[in-house]
Design a protein around this nucleic acid. Structure first.
Length: 599
RNA sequence: GGGGAUGUAGCUCAGUUGGUUAGAGCGCCGCCCUGUCAAGGCGGAGGUCGCGAGUUCGAGUCUCGUCAUUCCCGCCA
């Protein structure tokens, strides 16, 4: 971490310091200064002791001479890693021969006259002075030590700059930052709620908000016109590398607006936020329809930084005698494929890819190598005519040596989704993602509804407050006024124009099978608000954790959160979730069926 | 709910077809050392091989279970 360096304002002189460690650069040679921080490293020569002192700004070398300050030299000999010290001394220029070019203060050192040891440290469970790999569970258990190492802290600094920029830009556009409650009404829709039992009202429960969605709509009914919040949201679902049970959204909403207004303000914010991370983009961002994204990339959050696009081979194989393709196509299904290019894939590799697509719902994977004579080396080659092979090769734009990977499925989205996942895997496996390049794209023209086979019902693709676009009596073809913003294959945000009349809102609830009584029970307060003159309004939410993860180039969302949860939702530092006293449970009028958890 | 991977010294890891006393680097402790900056030299301590069963003459190694961490599927309007 020697090369990390932060320029900070001059600290107020007090009992501990008058200068930051790297602030010494700004001070004249010979000046008496005082610094405080941690003993980062020690180099004890017996007669001469060097201590690298570290504070947030960076590192400065302290030298203890026995003949300059005998007491300080003796004390310095007892220092160990991570002891907290305050040192007074004279700033001196190093001889040319001993300049350290690796740190900004390398041409200086502080010749100690006095040292005070403010706190001793036990030997840390892992080395704070090195950036080598340490098991994440251990880092999270001692996150305060991990933060000293300087792998996470730069991300937190970036996150700070991002939120400051968000507040500045939105303030310049007349947005009001308003806080909404964290103890809210359960609205069993979407994700599983975190529930909080009420002590005062026996049998009553709060839910932690999955998002401030309904509150922000009420703020629009309340005439605030332009609102934003950097809001904590909670969803009790299983975790992933890019999902935490509590996470942060930039939530915003505007009145009397159309899609273009929300998109424009979002682009203005993102352009400046990205610039904070040294990423410079042009506005307006690219747009792509949902159908095109699904067709070409098999995903509604496509990564546009590389090719490997999905092709449709329905027409090529329309009259095929090959049973698998024939039955899928006559049943209304689809055959789609990726030209993976010239890849050396062994039989074992192909088996692994087959298992991979099966894991994403596909029945199997057809592979074919294009050979010199134009034929295919493929398990299915013998079932296909020469014309079909030639046509498919042409449709794929394939050349000799290319590998074609195809999936046939009765459901278009299954085939597309499996190939979309395969596409991302191949891109990583063959290192096709250009370093340092970023692609932002708006996905628009979403369907309003999708049919849930399990529930045998229409469910909203976004949420039931999204304004529909089209004929309300034709759910299968009903569009929505929703839009997602996608960066490098990650959905970093999404939003919509909302429904602002009770008639349309009730109609949508009807279609998705929520009857009047149930709607009244769940969303009655919103429906009532819509009766009193709700302005046309819309907005969007950006996943701040994901956005900062991308900007920081971090591996995991956990690397941009000071105190993240583990993949099982536990906090390794505090031990949460933990058991509680019987009395606390009784006070809340609840009964636990689980064995007591002590830690 | 399902599948994969990992678990050996404080940390990061190695440990062959099951075979005597489980190793390395860093860290830690002691001594030496006045220009190092990953300081150096010499010496030393440190292990419930995640936990529990089983197979075997013998298990870090094989089997089963379990726990923890992690990645993925389902889930996440």
């Amino acid at each position: 971490m020697n090369d990390r360096h932060e320029v900070l304002g001059q600290p107020r002189k007090n009992a501990y310091r008058d200068t930051w460690a790297t602030g010494a650069i700004e001070q004249p040679i010979g000046k008496e200064i005082q610094v405080s921080g941690w003993a980062h490293r020690r180099r004890d020569h017996g007669g001469l002791v060097f201590i690298d002192l570290r504070d947030r700004s960076g590192i400065i070398q302290i030298v203890f001479h026995p003949d300059v300050a005998a007491a300080a030299h003796e004390a310095a000999g007892t220092l160990r890693a991570e002891d907290v010290i305050s040192v007074k001394g004279k700033l001196i220029k190093r001889d040319e021969a001993v300049v350290n070019l690796a740190i900004p203060t390398g041409h200086l050192e502080l010749q100690a006259s006095e040292i005070e040891i403010l706190a001793r440290s036990e030997t840390p469970p892992f080395q704070v002075d090195e950036d080598g790999h340490v098991d994440e569970a251990l880092r999270l258990k001692h996150r305060y030590l991990d933060l000293r190492r300087g792998t996470i802290t730069p991300n937190l600094k970036l996150r700070h700059r991002v939120t400051q920029t968000i507040r500045r830009v939105l303030d310049e556009h007349d947005f009001l930052e308003v806080e909404t409650p964290n103890l809210t009404r359960p609205t069993p829709e979407g994700a599983r709620d975190y529930l909080v039992p009420s002590r005062v009202k026996p049998g009553g429960w709060y839910a932690l908000p999955q998002s401030p969605q309904l509150y922000k709509q009420l703020l629009m009914v309340g005439g605030l016109e332009r609102y934003f919040q950097i809001a904590r949201c909670f969803r009790d679902e299983d975790l992933r590398a890019d999902r935490q049970p509590e996470f942060t959204q930039l939530d915003l909403e505007m009145s009397f607006v159309e899609e273009e207004d929300v998109i424009a303000i979002t682009e203005a914010v993102l352009k400046e936020v990205l610039a904070d991370a040294g990423i410079f983009v042009e506005t307006p961002f690219q747009r792509m329809c949902y159908d095109e994204a699904m067709g070409r990339f098999g995903k509604d959050a496509p990564d546009l930084r590389y090719g490997l696009e999905i092709q449709n081979l329905d027409e090529v194989f329309a009259a095929s005698e090959f049973k698998v393709f024939n039955s899928v196509l006559t049943g209304g299904g689809t055959v789609r494929a990726i030209n993976a290019g010239k890849r050396e894939l062994s039989r074992a590799d192909l088996d692994e890819l087959t298992e991979f697509v099966k894991g994403h719902g596909a029945g199997g994977l057809v592979w074919a190598f294009v050979e010199e004579d134009g034929g295919w080396r493929s398990p299915i080659a013998k079932f296909l005519s020469a014309e079909e092979i030639a046509a498919a090769t042409a449709a794929m734009g394939a050349e000799v040596g290319d590998v074609i990977l195809a999936v046939a499925d009765a459901k278009k989205n299954t085939a597309a989704g499996a190939l979309g996942a395969l596409r991302e895997r191949l891109a990583r496996q063959f290192d096709l993602i250009p370093f340092g390049e970023h692609r932002l794209v708006w996905i628009v023209k979403f369907p309003m509804l999708e049919f849930d086979d399990d529930a045998q019902a229409w469910t909203p693709l976004h949420h039931p407050f999204t304004a529909p676009d089209g004929d309300l009596n034709d759910p299968a073809n009903l569009g929505s006024r929703a839009y997602d913003i996608v960066m490098d294959g990650w959905e970093i945000g999404g939003g919509s124009i909302r429904i602002n009349t009770v008639e349309v809102q009730e109609k949508i609830l009807d279609i998705i099978g929520i009857d009047r009584a149930e709607a009244e029970e769940r969303f009655g307060f919103l429906l009532e608000a819509l009766k009193y003159g709700a302005p046309p309004h819309g907005g969007l939410a950006i996943g701040l954790d994901r956005l900062v993860t991308l900007l920081a180039g971090a591996e995991s969302i956990r690397d941009v959160i000071a105190f993240p949860k583990s993949a099982t939702g536990a906090d390794p530092l505090t031990g949460a979730p933990a058991g509680v006293d019987e009395q606390q449970i009784r006070d809340l009028h609840i009964v636990s069926t689980a064995p007591r958890t002590d830690d």
